[in-house]
């Protein structure tokens, strides 16, 4: 469980977050959604400690994140995996070295154990055999998968992903989404994903946080999305004229579902 408590964040005069309270639940795929510029990335970076909030607290289970001792912080860090919006794969290292990096830094595993773990992680994301390629030699979707493999290599308790399927075709996007939810379920991870992809919302949203103008505008799960009459949510989900048409047709057919 990760909890944001009264989070405010400003950059100079720009008030990006204006008091966010939200609990991201364990062994669930938690989503942060909202329009581009809503502050999703900023909130995620506060949750992982890359930004200090102007005000507010972050709780990792019963620990106050910004009050941790160095040793406690390192312990939590080693339980965190993150997938960046731009991958952040180390481009002068091979895929294998990228995935090994956290093990090299923090574990005393033997060569053999490391190699096995790398192969397992690559297999888990269906990318076996690309160990010796460089990130620039593989496609964007493959880079995302390698990013996931690197994020899970130390068996994290908390997994963060910033727009894991942006820039991918809808099919690949869905496989990445389901990969993340599967990994979450298999390992009881607290997973937090930023997205503005409405497919993801409807497929994997078990606990959704909708950001709008710096505030929490709505919260619920994917089944509650359609039933909700929250205007901001409806406006966000059914953004395109095409989807609005679909929705009104579904409603006029008498059903609440599409």
């Amino acid at each position: 469980m990760i909890r944001a408590e009264g989070i405010f964040k400003s950059f100079d005069q720009n008030k990006v977050l204006k008091g966010i309270d939200f609990t991201f639940e364990a062994s669930k795929t938690n989503l942060i959604i909202g329009k581009s510029g809503a502050g999703k990335t900023v909130l995620l970076k506060i949750l992982v400690g890359l930004f200090q909030p102007t005000k507010g607290k972050i709780w990792y289970d019963d620990k106050d994140f910004f009050q941790l001792s160095k040793a406690e912080l390192l312990k939590i860090r080693m339980q965190v995996g993150m997938l960046f919006q731009g991958n952040a794969l180390f481009d002068s290292m091979t895929v294998e070295d990228n995935i090994r990096f956290p093990m090299d830094m923090f574990t005393r595993m033997t060569e053999g154990e490391k190699r096995k773990r790398v192969d397992y992680c690559l297999e888990r994301v269906s990318m076996e055999g690309i160990n010796n390629k460089f990130p620039s030699e593989i496609s964007g979707g493959m880079q995302k998968r390698v990013g996931i493999a690197r994020a899970i290599v130390l068996k994290p308790k908390y997994l963060f992903a910033d727009e894991p399927n942006s820039g991918l075709d809808p099919k690949t996007a869905i496989t990445i989404d389901s990969l993340l939810t599967d990994i979450t379920d298999e390992n009881n991870i607290t997973t937090i994903i930023n997205t503005h992809d409405m497919n993801s919302v409807m497929e994997i949203g078990e606990n959704i946080c909708l950001l709008h103008l710096g505030k929490l505008a709505w919260q619920g799960n994917k089944d509650e999305v359609l039933e909700s009459d929250n205007e901001i949510l409806q406006d966000f989900i059914f953004a395109s004229p095409f989807l609005q048409k679909l929705k009104s047709r579904a409603l006029s057919n008498g059903g609440g579902s599409l």
Partner: peptide, 13 residues
């Protein structure tokens, strides 16, 4: 700029 440093920070480096 490529967020490699952020990625390492999050790992605990």
């Amino acid at each position: 700029q490529k967020e490699h440093i952020d990625a390492m920070e999050i790992m605990g480096v």
